[in-house]
């Protein structure tokens, strides 16, 4: 009744079963050896698969360019229309020039999340390093964009002119803190949600090995969690994108 994911001898393994829910997130070199900055790892593999999947949908799926779309073309057009409408509605009409970047973000996060749900897959978006780079890129570009477009007027974002004058400095401090907390929550939300879901699925899968005759109960639970994770994968991609749009709106129209 032992569940060892890796051939390590550990204390818990002797007493019963050992579930190592975090092992699935390990970064490993594809061809052995140490992990240096350029080594092809499972990160490389799954990011490449993400690019392939996104390209398959958006290019191979939409290859017909038909007036009456096929199924794949419909899906590609739906993704396009969905993100386009989101950018237009949330960030405003003049944010449309950033649409390709927002769309790239959406596609990357969506397909990384979905591919990560394949059993034995590696979820690139469950790593804080990855999501932090994405979030901080958005944060810095949006901040720089705000200063380029509006100069010092961009600081009006922190000066709540509708509040009483005495309250404004306090509010400014709060706004400033919440502004700098944005990339942190932006990245940790995605990585945390992905990590949590996968870890829970793994823990329940470990229970199935430990329960013997009652193995079906955790399997049912895993099935339910899997459906929930599918939902979470899509919603987190949506949330990541829509928050990018919200931050973009603040940079384009900083009036508070």
């Amino acid at each position: 009744m032992r569940m060892r994911i890796k051939g390590t001898t550990d204390v818990a393994g002797e007493s019963g079963f050992a579930i190592k829910p975090m092992d699935q997130f390990e970064v490993k070199a594809l061809f052995g050896g140490d992990v240096s900055w350029y080594t092809p790892t499972n990160v490389t593999l799954w990011m490449a698969l993400t690019v392939l999947a996104a390209s398959a949908l958006m290019i191979y799926g939409a290859r017909g360019r038909a007036l009456v779309p096929s199924r794949g073309q419909s899906a590609a057009e739906m993704a396009y229309g969905f993100v386009y409408k989101m950018v237009e509605d949330v960030a405003g009409k003049d944010a449309v020039r950033f649409f390709p970047y927002v769309f790239t973000l959406f596609m990357f996060v969506l397909f990384a999340n979905l591919l990560g749900l394949i059993p034995f897959a590696f979820t690139t978006t469950s790593h804080i390093a990855v999501t932090a780079v994405l979030a901080f890129t958005v944060f810095f570009s949006v901040t720089v964009l705000g200063f380029i477009l509006h100069g010092t007027k961009f600081l009006g974002l922190f000066w709540v002119s509708s509040a009483p004058l005495a309250l404004r400095p306090i509010l400014a401090v709060i706004e400033l803190i919440s502004y700098f907390a944005r990339p942190v929550s932006h990245s940790i939300r995605l990585a945390g949600a992905m990590m949590a879901g996968h870890a829970v699925v793994k823990v329940f899968a470990g229970f199935a090995g430990a329960l013997g005759i009652f193995f079906f109960a955790p399997i049912l639970a895993v099935t339910a969690f899997y459906a929930l994770e599918l939902l979470v994968a899509v919603i987190q991609a949506y949330v990541f994108t829509i928050l990018t749009c919200v931050y973009l709106k603040d940079a384009l129209h900083p009036s508070h």
């Binding site: 940790i188 939300r189 945390g192 949590a196 949330v239 829509i242 928050l243």
Partner: peptide, 23 residues
């Protein structure tokens, strides 16, 4: 619905922070 999801995302983020602290 966009506002709904933004609100849910903010609320959920705080829960995920506590999860992260637990981890």
């Amino acid at each position: 619905t966009a506002m709904l999801f933004i609100g849910i995302a903010f609320a959920e983020a705080l829960g995920i922070f506590s999860f992260l602290v637990a981890l």
